[in-house]
């Protein structure tokens, strides 16, 4: 059982933009995600270590970017339990400046509709600094 979907599958068209959102990340958000997830890789909080391994700066955890990017879709459908598959490729890092942070924007569009299975695929475009940071970011939603 789950909450009724907030939108009807039959009302959707492939290409519809169903949600957009923008998130500001600062170093505090990275520390919070490190604690919550258990990923304490120092490249996510120490500038010196990030520089040592050749990175342009402290990076957001890829899994943090993946985790927040699905949230506009969860809010749109109204129930996190309706996401039954979610995949991304990590194509570009998000560098989080110690003072100004980083702004990550998400656009979610209907990629495919399966009326028989009562599912929809939602494709995410996630951008930072005017370039995409995730590839093949696809969310599968159940409407049944």
């Amino acid at each position: 059982m789950a909450a009724s979907p907030a939108h009807a599958l039959a009302s959707l068209t492939v290409g519809d933009e169903i949600a957009t959102a923008s998130y500001h990340l600062d170093r505090g958000n990275l520390v919070r995600y490190a604690g919550a997830s258990g990923d304490f890789n120092a490249i996510h909080y120490r500038d010196d270590i990030a520089a040592e391994v050749g990175l342009p700066g402290v990076l957001a955890h890829g899994m943090l970017t993946m985790g927040l990017s699905v949230q506009p879709v969860v809010d749109w459908i109204g129930d996190p339990g309706r996401v039954f598959d979610y995949q991304v490729k990590f194509t570009r890092p998000v560098v989080v400046d110690p003072k100004t942070g980083a702004q990550v924007s998400v656009s979610a569009k209907v990629g495919a509709i399966d009326l028989e299975a009562q599912t929809a695929r939602v494709d995410l475009t996630v951008t930072y600094d005017e370039a995409t940071v995730l590839g093949k970011a696809q969310v599968q939603l159940s409407f049944s």
Binding site: A3, Y23, N29, R32, Y33, G35, A36, S37, L64, G67, L68, Q71, V74, D75, G78, D79, P80, G81
Partner: peptide, 9 residues
């Protein structure tokens, strides 16, 4: 909270 999830569920 860490992934900006705000849904009451």
């Amino acid at each position: 909270r860490a992934v900006f999830a705000t849904n009451p569920i």
